[in-house]
Design a protein around this nucleic acid. Sequence first.
DNA 1: TCCATATCGGACCAATCGGTATTTTTATAT
DNA 2: ATATAAAAATACCGATTGGTCCGATATGGA
Lengths: 180, 180
Amino acid sequence: MKSYWGDGPTAVSINEICRRAGVSKPGLYREFGNEDDLKTAALESYRELVLSQLFEIFEADQPFDEALAALTGLALQDRAQTGLPTGCLFGKMRGCRSELGPKTNGAIDATWSTAQDRMQDWIDRAKRNGQLDSQISTTTATLYVDAQIANAITMQAEGVQKAEISEFLQIAFNGLKCFG
Amino acid sequence: MKSYWGDGPTAVSINEICRRAGVSKPGLYREFGNEDDLKTAALESYRELVLSQLFEIFEADQPFDEALAALTGLALQDRAQTGLPTGCLFGKMRGCRSELGPKTNGAIDATWSTAQDRMQDWIDRAKRNGQLDSQISTTTATLYVDAQIANAITMQAEGVQKAEISEFLQIAFNGLKCFG
DNA sequence: TCCATATCGGACCAATCGGTATTTTTATAT
DNA sequence: ATATAAAAATACCGATTGGTCCGATATGGA
């Protein structure tokens, strides 16, 4: 069900969702409430399915370099094999917030907030361990890592070769390591 | 007219465009043809208004570092002052190609192709001048620069502070300079 | 077996979509 | 001033949108 959000949270109508899922429209409404609730549920499902893997990396007790390598590996893993759609639902939703309902927007805020918290802890830890230049603002670093991962996932969805995405992330993360 | 594409190329209906522009629907259709043509025209207008400034930087005969600085300045310039909407129409369109018509998609292809050409020339020139590590794949470099500029513009649209965007680009372009 | 109850889906709703036919207005020429 | 040509807007088209009503159908207890 949630898998059909691969082609954009605003690109698929409720009718189309029902058609694809083989479920009646009243049935879907009984289960989810309305469109806003449905999209909220889809985002929550995405968070548990995909973002949780990122959070695990951020929380893991490992050197900064290894965490970056793990992030690269995660961003590069083949979505086609897992049967899941490509692209980042969270990123797509953040890109068209004005077209989404208030509940979905609230969920986006909450998700982004917890993601930033996780990343802040991780960045601050790396700074304390001397693995990251403490001149770099923590908030900028979180924005940076988030954006680069989103870039990589989006590029994969657009069909860019894995080797190029890998090099892309290598360059991007290099910017963090050799700062100043 | 084209300014109303600020809130997303799929978020605004033809009816709404007419309402905002104070023009009748047949009038708009007489001028542009259909929705696909209108969006194509909007993209062309955006290319001449915004992307042309990027192309000028790529074509200018200046050191690589100065070009990067110029790109940073361009990405940071305040859109609110110019009266233009924030965000990157080209990037938004690339993010929802399946929702756009064939003509608009063709224009996206053409725009992206010429943008990549301009960047390739620029990157190759920097490599020849020893201002950029030639180990970096040219196509990856073009993808990289494009993505970072898009990131910066998107962040400005989301209300991120200028100082953070500036630091963001400093980190990102650092990754190009100190590679390997 | 028969009735009550709970679930489910076909059919329907007003609103809006992209797009157009037709009528009204405006301007011109005689 | 009046008939005619050009321009523009009102009013409408079928299709689709998010959302709901209500009849059909399945289930369970007596």
